[in-house]
Design a protein around this nucleic acid. Sequence first.
RNA 1: GCGCGUUUAGCUCAGUUGGCUAGAGUACCACAUUGACAUUGUGGGGGUCACUGGUUCAAGUCCAGUAACGCGCACCA
Length: 1010
Amino acid sequence: MATELPKAYDPKAAQEKWLSFWEERGYFHSEPDASKKPYTIVIPPPNVTGALHMGHALNNTLQDVLIRWRRMQGFNALWMPGTDHAGIATQSVVERLVFQQEKKTRHDLGRDALVKRIWEWKDKYEARILGQLRELGASCDWRRTRFTLDPVCARAVRETFFRMFRDGYIYRGKRLVNWDTHLQTSVADDETYTEETKSGFWTFKYPVDGMPDTFISFSTTRPETMLGDTAVCVHPSDERYKALVGKLVLQPHTGRKIPIIADGQLADPELGTGCVKVTPAHDPNDYACWQRHPEIGIINILNPDGTINEAGGEYKGMDRYKAREAVTEKMKELGLYVDKSERMVPMPYSDRSKTPIEPYLSDQWFVKMGDREDSKPGLAQMTMDAVTSGKVKFFPERYARSYLDWLTEKRDWCISRQLWWGHRIPVWSKTFPSNRAFEAALVWDFDGAHQWLDRERVASQGQEGSLTLHLCLKADDPPTIARLESLGFTQSDDVLDTWFSSALWPHSTLGWPGPALPEEKPGRAPANWDALRYYYPTSTLVTSRDIITLWVARMVLTGLYNVGDIPFRDVYIHPKILDGFGEGMSKTKGNGVDPLDIIDLYGTDAMRYTMVKMATENQDARMPVSNVCPHCGTMIPQKQEHQSMRTKKLTCPGDKAKGITCGKAFRPGGPWPEPDPELPTARQASDRFEEGRNFANKMWNATRFLLMNLDGYTPGPMKLEELPTEDRWLLSRLATTTRAVTAALEGYRFSDVARLVYDFVWSEFCDWYIEMSKGRLKDAAARPTAQRVLAGVLDGILRLVQPVMPFVAESLWQALNEAAPERGLPAPSKAEESAAIARWPSYPEGWINSEVEARFARMQELVRGVREIRNRYQVDDKTRLDVSVKCSPAVAADFNALAAFIGPLAGIANLTAGPNTAKPKQAGGLVKPEFEAYVSLVGLIDVSAELKRLEKQLTDKRKSLEGTRAKLANEKFVSGAPPEVVQQQRELASDIEKQIAALEENLKDLRSAE
RNA sequence: GCGCGUUUAGCUCAGUUGGCUAGAGUACCACAUUGACAUUGUGGGGGUCACUGGUUCAAGUCCAGUAACGCGCACCA
């Protein structure tokens, strides 16, 4: 007896076993090799603090499918793994933790201590997320693992910043930023969310200067910003205010006199009073207005912590919300208060701290995106050209549009962040009180190869005329830094936007700017020119659509700018996974699903299969979830109120169908902060994964069947034309499937890959071929060929399946290697030692044989027809039926050749086929378009019930014939439609005619039997 | 408001350049059960292809419009 497999596939055992097997053999490590073509993917680096979520599972499964497939195709496949330091996300997590544990803020700890704490945190969580990726089966080259703060990356960041600074792309500017007063940092637009919040809506009036009893009124939701008003604004065409434009009004809190201006973009005469106050430093629209009317001035009234600064006069030091009340109170005292109402206003919040955002004017560093006066390229334009020229292709194509639309705006990129965790901005600055002092400083002798000077006028309030010298150092050179510091220069406290280092990811991780090597950890593969030259540009980027602008566009930008070439040729954008209610999964919503729960319950292969199946062209994938009762295992569908931890406790209703009455309580699955010792938490499941689990088991058992029937197996070559019909059919189907799968992978049609493989394995190989082989395996003459075909086709299946479900594929590959190490089609050869490195299959085009497929389909129709009758008349399996088929001699020959196999499949005792075959007396009918088959059912059926059924069928068929004939009688149709379509209709009509005739005969027979 | 998507069986989704009786998985119903597999097998029921109009011999598919949902971008004093 050959190798025995257990009855069911055990995913856990397989996962553990093959992960270490693959790694020990180093299959996933890649080195530059001029004799092979590279295929490279860089991972979208997950956040170090993150735990694996469904989005990662999808994203990384798809990358792994591509990498494993290309590796099998003989490419030198490199999948570069790594993690992102994710500035604000990570820092705020650690800050929060430190505060919880020690009640210390980051300012209590100090910069160095906090950064050290974050590094410790990072080491731990980086290991966790990378470990989880490994468990997914991700075939990354782990020896090349990078982190965006690694020396390799830091060097690239420094070099890029230096070059951009030198080339005049980086500049210092004032911008209104989203200010998080809690974290005291600016936040990107996409790091904020807007929530409808109940707010006061005040109306006040300002007295017009020099016009007693004349007032101009306006409304606001933020009265404290009146302290920073520098104008009031009306619409130029607004008749009510025309006379007032150009006059001054009194800002009562500060005593300043501010102008009434006309601006058609800011003021809307239809809204409110038609007049708005203008606070350029604290409102984005007002800021834009100030840019159009710079003469009105701009006054910042806030400190970084959200209190009022010295510009607020007597309100200085007050929290902004306290100031809101005080300012309002003052207006009441002065009789300038009109009224107040409540309304819901959209209020921006910081995603990290969950506190309201303040628009805040601050000094920031920017990358200039627009076109330039000199000969240097405009960065946005250059980045767009890469896509419009077709050098970078999007899959699906439509996403190129989001990319281009966003870049068209050419908005400058704010790259500074007021954080401590990240790449510190390599700029040292000093402010000089006068121009002369500044000029004097410029004559200092610095080595131009390592630094670059930039100068810029700073026009902050009260310091007009002062000048700041900014100096960028290409590398940290201690003597130079010491000298700068002794001269009073200080390094910027800010760090760079996380996306600045992620933008360099494809080339920094491969060794740009080479060739100098920073220190490497032992066991790490080097990043240098060799790697860069060989692997760059990478092949495919796999990511989600929400970072097309933030990340994809910027990688293209820096790739072109630094390396002079695009970072990747293809960008594949995958769908999003939504919850059962069509909403995106997020931590805040509490509707996420832990992939580890899924892996635990269904196995990694099952999860991967489902991820691949969900990756369709144009639709996000919904994933309804159930809670698995921790007591009895019953699945309870999750409702919306179970999410967001709104439901703290659920009672298991049990499962009536299975007779389980549980009634015990548990906590629904979700991102609970703490385990609850009293109440066990449910794991989450989704029946969408069952298909994958069942599929893995199906292949397991198909292999098991083969191994049980492999006694006496000998490898040997096969001649296609000598093989019986069912073999040729199977090989035709295998060749077709293999081609289709390869084409689907080439076009990033992942869902098709899963479907094609599934259908071939289950519906063709298992349902038909294996069933038919059972007879042949008992026949000494036919057995060797059947064994070879079974082994050869299974071999091909495992290769096709490997990229998607590597664990089960490897398990079965190894089992097959023991039993039949030499196998394959058309001629056997020694199989590779692992499915992970097996050659991707490709079969001769000549195997695809539509004639054989058609003949086989006819046979399947006969079998299905007989089964249908058997089911309808409740004929048990033990009763053998006699079937006679009236057909052409060729078809008859086919049926007779296959009779030995058809018999067992349909429970047929005698199958007779031929042109002159006599119809059995009193037969139940079965009609097929190309042949007439009669099943003898004498004594087996309820004749009167059957009569009724047939009569109804006859009526339906007559109607359908009428319709078809009408169509054929239509002159327009006959002349307008392609001939083959008309022919099809004719055939359909004659088929129906035949069917009607057969039905009539059946009825006659049955009536006589009655 | 602008742009992009989606709407097909109870649920989750396929459906190529218009062309045979619109498919799959799951759920449901019936039957089967020592033979690879109950994570199974066989068969069945279930669809006004969101709606309206148009083009065409022919529309789930193309065009126009409507509605609902989702996403992105702008805007909301």
